[in-house]
Design a binder for these strands. Structure first.
Lengths: 352, 352
DNA sequence: CTGAAAGCGCTTACAG
DNA sequence: CTGAAAGCGCTTACAG
């Protein structure tokens, strides 16, 4: 096994272009391109010469140039509000899975929950991607119309844009919320008793759907909504408030797991025992939910799957295999019952 | 406030180019370009006309074309083994922070811990980025030399490439491990007693450094290494093994938090109480560490900061403000003492 | 201050 | 099967 000496590049130097390859192989640039791209209409001998020259010159194709002439980038743009946290991790995992299977690259960008940044991110995608997966509150139809190039297809993920009929894949937040609340209700025979909800930010569509689910599933119990903002701190504050209440609610449904956790921390600090004194449930099933003690009852939507499907759909649109606009798709979620809402530890354990 | 009617694009149509803008503004393409790019040498009237035409045509510049002629993308490529989990979240957060401040875009790609994929990811960066942040085991000098275009600067993050003097930013895993083990030793006066280590994968450099730290800090105690692979499952298996041992180690240092957590789960199942029966510590300070009960003693390296600094350095290299090759930089870490290694709950609480 | 032209690095009809 | 040429959409010396 020969070990070719690795050239240590100690200073910046221009890299080889396809012209260099063609020249050292003694063929035309067109032929070099054909050989490099594995076209069949190339004489084996020539292909050989080109490939040798390429590896000798350490040729790496220039993607921007390629994109420009092929009018194709084999890349999907993904715009997310943020990359931090389990939720977005799952989105990326799903998208990545599907992209790899199709041999597509991913260009990921964040909008930081800011409309101006979202606009900038979307603009920057032009010429870099064949299509866009957009997940971002704070975008509206005008922003899209002004910043999205007319020729780039887009699919929305867990995002609703009023007015415009874009293809969208969303979690069924309403149904998920109904399922948790019905579970809390059945377990605690709460009819007539007080049940609390710690809501997410008021301007967030997901918050709104979960809150609606809560209100519609109360089923005879008296509902009470504490305002939160999806942060652990706001859950903690709500927990302190709950601990002081009299009568104390029989159960509390937090609009996400982080708030449920903050709430449980506050309750424990006030000497209350979950679920004996008050049952708690969240939404999302972040990894901590399973590891908490008591472990947290929650709702899990398969975000990775949702994202995977969104990318598949986008790829089909790009390939002309699917219509430019599709109907919205909703993905279901399922309840995961754990210790925080059940007295029987054994039953909860199987659900972990 | 006038509400311009949003044009609903119901079928794919080509988007406007700078030629279209120039034509409708009645100026040359060169002038359109100058106006669009905010050059000062442009008559105000012309600038006005061009800008109006651009917004009217919903013009969005084609990035690939721009990149090709400017020979600059304003984009940094980031190659990670994976995007899943807290660690990479932190990397991305740090990189993103620095990139935004400099007005740079990020092109993120994953190598899935596979050399071939890493090579493909690195190749695909050519022409798309001005420089590369590479974090990936499984790469060696040859792979880099063969797949990294000669003109793209690169900085390594938490990655070591034997032989080649690339600029690198790494966590000081050795020092961190020494700190935890010394803490465990002091707390439990373990001289002469058994202390266990659950190691990471043997071929991982970080594992190796943490293991060395463990062995060097034993300080009179007897060391015992259980092989793990960074997964919760392997920590769980190690925990079961520890529970059976006689004499039982006084403390265990897991090479990462996930294994420490798996271990604690197993110990609890076997009826052992942490830290009374055995002290436990991990490495990384993932979010769950703080939320576990007992909360987990661990080591925290500021990964976001490390990554931020790496990007800053790369940006400087690109701008010619820093040498093409820099010396390696090490970032420190600090011990976070929590309940899993201390009997005094009060003391632990302040550290949370 | 403005325009015509060359060029960035590639691909792809079009002839041969 | 191969090559010369045009073109992808932009920017930037170069003249004027």
């Amino acid at each position: 096994m020969s070990t070719p000496s690795v050239q240590t590049v100690s200073a910046r130097m221009p890299s080889a272009t396809i012209r260099d390859v063609a020249r050292t192989a003694g063929v035309s640039v067109a032929s070099a391109s054909r050989a490099l791209n594995g076209m069949t209409t190339v004489a084996p001998a020539m292909r050989e010469r080109v490939l040798t020259a390429a590896s000798q010159l350490r040729y790496v194709p220039h993607t921007a140039a390629r994109a420009l002439s092929r009018r194709r980038t084999d890349t999907i743009g993904v715009v997310l509000p943020d990359l931090h946290g389990e939720f977005f991790s799952e989105v990326i995992r799903g998208v990545d899975m599907a992209a790899r299977r199709r041999g597509l690259h991913l260009l990921i960008s964040t909008s930081h929950g800011d409309a101006a940044e979202a606009a900038a991110a979307i603009r920057a995608m032009r010429g870099r991607v064949d299509g866009l997966l957009l997940m971002s509150p704070h975008v509206d139809g005008h922003l899209l119309a002004d910043n999205l190039a007319a020729d780039v297809p887009m699919v929305l993920v867990n995002t609703q844009v009023e007015g415009h009929p874009h293809t969208a894949f969303c979690v069924d937040n309403y149904a998920g919320a109904v399922a948790v609340v019905e579970h809390l209700a059945s377990g605690a025979k709460i009819s007539g008793r007080l049940v609390a909800h710690i809501s997410g930010p008021a301007d967030n569509l997901e918050s709104q759907d979960r809150r609606r689910g809560f209100l519609d599933a109360l089923n005879g119990a008296e509902g009470l909504v504490l305002e939160g903002d999806f942060s652990e701190e706001s859950g903690y504050a709500a927990g302190l408030a709950l601990a002081e209440m009299n009568p104390r609610p029989a159960a509390v449904f937090a609009a996400n797991d982080m708030m449920a956790i903050g709430c449980m921390l506050a309750l424990a600090e006030k000497g209350l025992v979950v679920p004996r004194d008050i049952a708690v449930a969240g939404f999302d099933d972040i990894p901590v939910a399973r590891l908490m003690r008591p472990s947290l009852t929650t709702v899990r939507a398969n975000i990775a799957d949702l994202s995977r499907r969104a990318l598949e759909c986008l790829a089909q649109i790009i390939n002309g295999e699917a219509p430019w606009r599709n109907a919205a798709q909703t993905v279901g979620s399922h309840l995961i019952v754990r210790e925080s809402s059940t007295v029987q530890t054994a039953a909860a354990k199987t659900a972990i």
